[in-house]
Design a protein around this nucleic acid. Structure first.
Lengths: 245, 245
DNA sequence: ATGAGGCTCCGTACAGTGTTCGGAGTCGCC
DNA sequence: GGCGACTCCGAACACTGTACGGAGCCTCAT
């Protein structure tokens, strides 16, 4: 049997054909246009036909540059990860400051592209992408510089990233729903109140919680919540995994 | 204007029409069949027509019980959350043991239904579902019993849940990709090696990491990784948010 | 008994989807 | 000049979510 049959269906596991001329469409253009479409109209609105129209191209012209829609999404995911600030070693404030900055940049990036969290759960090989690889290596380096063993650094990174992705998933879900409603956050929460109160009936703690949240600035409270949770995670990582913890 | 126009597009914000007789189709049956279909064939394979066929019903018969596919997914998500072990107050081992058990049950549940992580990013109002409400209330109670204020309990719960969802997202992505490939985990990782080595080229830490992971039992290492990360998160929550921490 | 109204179920239809295939055009190279 | 490789695309296929209108049935007021 041929040795190179396509057994690993990921963009990152396939040699790219070299092209010599400069064709009208390029993979970079396609990915960039897809990203723009996703940001402006959401995941459900991304179709190959619309994408082609954005590029003044036919619907099926993309298939010479991208195997299929799933792999296009893999590419776009890596493109998004390219926007995350890569943490630098040698930060005088230590690994905690560097990781905090990276985590905050990562959350901001994911929330700038809220559709991405729906894709992450199916992009099983995303970690092979060049931007993700670069980011991963840099985070490992930061932890190692802080004295972590490679295994501990991997564990610590996975924990922090999981937290960031988890928070962003719930926040992105809210943002997406809110955007679809076309209403402002204020109006939205007000209109939601009856349903929330109904859900919290017979649950006293939920009732107190919802009552206490009324009138607060939702945006700021989300930022604070993320920051405090991140402090918790880093505190635990320091205590459980750092060398002198 | 009418006071009850549908401004909040969620199942949980709409009064259910009362039916008196026992019709052929019920919302419970539909949700249950959808869950089965999702578990056996994945998110992409869930279509209203297939679902109808599973229930010996026409394609459009579901629309009398469920507003549309999105709301059906909301219902299924809450159904899944119903499988999570609700933590009990009064655990003599304290809040940490109770929360650990709940988190482990939650991860196991999400991984039993790996398609769910792709839906979580769009189910913005999932927390209004009855099962989610019940679970949330119980977790808040556990933390409060441990001496947390209601705000601290909320913060702690959100942090832990975010971690669990984040870990499960990456694990579910792997599981889904693996299932689609139709290969065993062993064979899969072997076939992936060249692509991984290519991605790790010029990244020494990634190279060491991938090399070290060869031959380990991936399943066990995932379980361990989750457990350790959870310990970190709880450690930090205890230090940062618990009353006497 | 009879009609009215409401509810459940579904066949049809529409607009749109991802992707395959075959053909047309264009370029560099022998 | 001709060949092969590559890029682009129109047509077609099988499928999707769901709006609509009609058919059958049940309950209740008259």
């Amino acid at each position: 049997m041929p040795a190179d049959e396509q057994q690993v269906p990921s963009v990152w596991a396939r040699p790219r054909p070299q092209r010599r001329d400069q064709p009208a469409l390029s993979r970079r253009q396609i990915v960039s246009a897809a990203l723009h479409l996703l940001d402006t109209e959401g995941l459900a609105a991304l179709s190959m036909r619309k994408l082609g129209a954005c590029l003044n191209a036919g619907a099926t012209s993309m298939y010479t540059h991208v195997a299929n829609k799933d792999e296009l999404l893999e590419l776009v995911v890596d493109e998004v990860y390219g926007e995350v600030d890569v943490p630098a070693t040698g930060d005088p404030a230590g690994w905690r400051a560097a990781v905090t900055g990276c985590a905050q940049s990562m959350r901001a990036t994911l929330l700038r592209h809220p559709w991405i969290v729906s894709v992450l759960g199916e992009a099983g090989l995303a970690y092979l992408g060049p931007n993700v690889s670069r980011l991963t290596e840099a985070m490992l380096a930061v932890f190692e510089e802080g004295g972590f063993s490679l295994q501990a650094a991997d564990q610590a990174m996975n924990t922090v990233v999981a937290y960031v992705v988890g928070v962003s998933t719930s926040e992105a879900a809210t943002l997406t729903t809110l955007a679809r409603s076309g209403q402002g956050e204020q109006e939205w929460t007000e209109r939601l109140l009856p349903a929330a109160e109904e859900a919290a009936r017979s649950y006293p703690r939920l009732r107190r919680l919802y009552a206490g949240q009324r009138g607060r600035q939702v945006r700021d409270s989300r930022d604070d919540g993320f920051r405090i949770g991140l402090e918790c995670v880093l505190e635990g990582v320091a205590a459980r995994l750092a060398p002198s913890g």
